[in-house]
């Protein structure tokens, strides 16, 4: 079952790293919006701010498990659901940016059906749906622009999705900790790629 499972300490730490990466992207996107009034950058700001807050809230459930934060009845469940909602909206804004950015004559509506067991699983399914759409559009954008950083982001998004799927599989085989470890490594790798444009931007003259 996917859903009401608190994060492990290792996952919580990764979520904090993810939150930092998301915050860095949101910060630059917001600066860009202030300077250019570009709606694309505003949507990126929203997307990564929500993802960042989602990651932080998500990590709290792991810290509760570690005993760093006092556990209040049903708090973990609420936090996980809230984090999943925020992440879903964040991924929606990311996907929405692509929908608005590349208005085409044909309409691409990928149909992905996923089993819905609990509310959180349903929300996470939607997140995956938006992520898959974003991956498709990012790959299309790479094929048009041939920019290496776009390809890196696309690979990162693929790694995040694969990491999430692998985590679901790890619930089915809890005795095989290697599957869980692979899922963690995929997520770390995926989230790290988001820092590439931040780093590139920061290294340029007048960056951060």
């Amino acid at each position: 079952m996917v859903g009401w499972v608190a994060l492990t300490p290792l996952e919580s730490i990764i979520q904090v790293i993810g939150a930092y990466v998301g915050y860095s992207v949101a910060k630059i996107a917001h600066r860009g919006y202030v300077a250019t009034h570009s709606p694309t950058l505003l949507r990126l700001t929203f997307a990564f701010t929500l993802l960042s807050v989602g990651f932080i809230i998500s990590s709290l459930s792991g810290f509760i498990e570690m005993g760093l934060i006092p556990n209040i009845a049903s708090l973990v469940g609420i936090l996980i659901t809230l984090a999943a909602v925020l992440e879903m909206i964040g991924y929606f804004f990311l996907a929405f940016s692509h929908i608005v950015d590349v208005r085409t004559m044909y309409k691409m509506v990928p149909s992905v059906t996923m089993p819905v067991i609990v509310v959180t699983a349903a929300i996470k399914s939607l997140s995956l749906y938006f992520l898959l759409y974003t991956i498709t559009e990012t790959i299309i954008a790479y094929m048009k622009m041939k920019k290496r950083t776009t390809l890196i982001i696309a690979i990162g998004l693929i790694l995040i999705v694969c990491g999430e799927f692998t985590r679901w599989i790890s619930f089915l085989y809890p005795e095989l900790s290697i599957i869980f470890l692979i899922s963690i490594l995929m997520k770390v790798g995926g989230l790290s790629t988001f820092y590439t444009p931040v780093l590139k931007f920061s290294l340029k003259k007048g960056g951060l």
Binding site: I28, A29, G32, A35, T36, S38, T40, L41, L44, L94, S97, H98, D101, T134, E137, T138, I139, I140, A141, Y142, M145, K147, T149, T150, I152, I153, A154, T196, P197, K200, F201, K204, G206
Partner: peptide
């Protein structure tokens, strides 16, 4: 041009 490159990294255009 700097922010355009940043947006392009995410496969987006300003």
């Amino acid at each position: 041009s700097r922010f355009e490159e940043f947006a392009q990294s995410f496969g987006l255009r300003l």
